[in-house]
Design a binder for these strands. Structure first.
Length: 396
DNA sequence: TCTGGGGTCCTAGGACCC
DNA sequence: TCTGGGGTCCTAGGACCC
């Protein structure tokens, strides 16, 4: 008896483009591209012509000359997202936000007051449409992974239930690219060996996958292909870093210009940190060069802060140490991010600080390792996965 | 496909401590 | 004098996601 499908994956369709079409009736039914330099979002009318997210603007316009190209309006998207998440939280308290436009919802235990998961999902879609004016797709399944794949398959403006008894029949014919964690690199390695579907992956032994892809990715894929995904919906996850970055174009900038841009980025990030009441310890400078190679340089401060000056000082020192690279390779992007926010999760939980038997902690870590197939589970990871709440931790 | 901005997570080596 | 294992933290890079 496999249990019931109670996890919803709710995913707004072509989110930015849909907001534009909602706010400007003249755009409805027409191909819309958000973002000129690079496509941030494309309406389904534009996708039908081959336009894709992250595609260069020139190619996108060539594929779809009749498209209306609009500048992004981030504050409108952020407001729409907030409104949608209110609908989510009116549906169930168990909401885990994944990004600005998608979330997992656990509706287990709501059957008596709210109906079956499919009924709840149907109502959720209607409410998002009525209250916020946006189309949304919902996948319903027993696990997060299947719910996510279901919404992907059901897009746009759809609803799909993967019934527990037909999970493998649903999963195995799908292309490997639908597996979470399979991007261009992993997909290439698999396809090189003729592995094209999830079913093909499932026929491989774990050892073969590990030797092909490495410890974590191998175990992870093996588990997903065998429909093993024990992750629960976690409420109240907080981001672990905040950053800002800026592409510079090919023209080349003077050191003074770069310094001014850096100061602007640090100011942007620290404002956001203070608004969110977060402080961090690790400052990372992110650089990208003419040939698209990248580099990062980081520095961890003794104490966390959200003040502009110490973070800017650290960023400047990192930039100075990167000067040879910058001069020889041509800088095309500079970014800054502040991580280790609130100790990267260590301090986010209220934990009893005494009397934790070490073997209990180790047993919990082992269990998480087993369930996540991860060889490098740390206490931080344990907390991030939200699995360790019942395990008291000792301070070091 | 010639590339934006915001993130997450894993790997691996080195420093350091006991 | 030469040598261990276990563990944490930091740094850098890479893959991936939306």
């Amino acid at each position: 008896m496999p249990g019931e499908a109670t996890i919803l994956h709710a995913d707004l369709d072509a989110f930015y483009a849909s907001v534009e079409q909602r706010d400007d009736p003249a755009l409805r039914g027409r191909p819309v591209i958000v973002g000129g330099g690079v496509v941030l979002a494309a309406s389904y009318e534009a996708k039908a012509r081959g336009v894709r997210t992250a595609m260069g603007g020139r190619l996108a316009r060539a594929l779809c000359p009749q498209a209306v190209v609009v500048e992004p309006r981030m504050s409108a998207y952020s407001a729409a997202s907030k409104a949608v998440f209110e609908v989510f939280r009116d549906t169930t308290p168990l909401v885990e936000g994944i990004s600005i436009d998608e979330a997992f919802l656990d509706v287990g235990g709501l059957r008596r007051i709210a109906g079956s998961p499919v009924q709840i999902a149907t109502r959720l879609r209607r409410e998002v449409r009525d209250r916020v004016g946006l189309p949304i797709t919902v996948g319903v399944a027993r696990t997060k992974f299947l719910a996510k794949v279901a919404s992907r398959v059901a897009k746009p403006d759809g609803l799909l239930l993967v019934a527990p008894e037909r999970e493998l029949a649903f999963l195995h014919p799908l292309p490997v690219e639908l597996l979470w964690g399979v991007g261009p690199v992993t997909s290439g390695k698999l396809r090189e060996r003729g592995i094209r579907t999830v079913g093909h992956v499932a026929r491989l032994g774990e050892a073969a996958l590990v030797s092909m892809l490495g410890q974590f990715a191998g175990r992870h894929l093996h588990a997903l292909a065998h429909n093993k995904d024990p992750r629960r919906v976690v409420v109240g996850r907080r981001r672990g870093s905040m950053g800002a970055q800026r592409a510079l174009g090919r023209s080349g900038r003077s050191p003074a210009e770069i310094d001014a841009i850096l100061a602007g980025l640090v100011d942007r990030v620290t404002r956001r940190m203070r608004a969110a009441d977060r402080a961090g310890r690790t400052v990372t400078l992110r650089l990208r060069f003419d040939d698209f190679s990248r580099a990062t340089r980081s520095h961890t401060m003794p104490r966390e802060t959200s003040q502009t000056q110490p973070i800017l000082d650290a960023a400047r020192r990192l930039l100075v140490t990167s000067r040879p690279m910058v001069e020889s390779r041509g800088l095309t992007l500079v970014g800054i991010s502040v991580g280790n926010l609130d100790g990267d999760g260590y301090l986010q939980l209220e934990l009893p600080l005494s009397g934790c038997p070490r073997d209990r902690l180790d047993a919990a870590l082992d269990e998480v390792r087993e369930r996540y197939g991860s060889a490098s589970v740390t206490r931080a990871a344990l907390l991030r996965h939200g699995e360790g709440l019942a395990v008291p931790l000792l301070p070091d």
